[in-house]
Amino acid sequence: MELDELERDALRELANVGLSRAATQLSELLNDHIEMTVPLVQVVPYDQVTQALQLDPHAMVAAVWQSFSGQSEGTSILMFPSEDSKRLVRALVGPSMLGAGEDDLRGIEHEAMMEIGNIIITSGMAVIADMLGQEVRMSLPGYMEGNLPDIMEQRNRDNAGREMQAIIMFTHLKAAQREIEGRMVMLMSVDSVQVLFDRLHKLLRSL
């Protein structure tokens, strides 16, 4: 099950359209000009996700996740390097954090990241649901921090025993004069990915 270059480009373009919508919403929310692009989309089997993400396995990662159900089931995880996400949130909500203690600060960061991640994941999954031609129901978002293997292991517990594939969107976020490289991983069953590929084929043939 492979995508050719044309199909990968098409998927990337769709992802770009979806995430630029998220950027518009974030700009409105954060009162700042925010750009989001997807320079690369990959589809890999589950056991290759960690390598494919191209992240330092020891570095701390801040992750927001939402699981989804319906005809397709799985989990979407958005990851940013912990330090970057902290700096981003501090730059964006700086004034309201003045005088906050270290614990408050962490709470504020988690909450802000969760909402930002919520918006990005929703837009990303809207693209996927659109491609699948299915209705996908999302859970409320959750937040966690840890190194990459920990996060992947924790999030894949629900899917244990099923053959999973991962769609990886490399995201490039520009906000508050900063640039942050993130990854959105959508873990879903091989069958769902197959449906997505078939629809992508059809879409490209109809053009």
Partner: peptide, 21 residues
């Protein structure tokens, strides 16, 4: 308003945090 739209259109629950709003 956008959260209501995202929620109904994409069936994705939305958090509106006190920190950002």
């Amino acid at each position: 308003l956008s959260a209501i739209e995202l929620c109904i259109k994409h069936k994705s629950p939305q958090l509106i945090s006190q920190t950002l709003n």
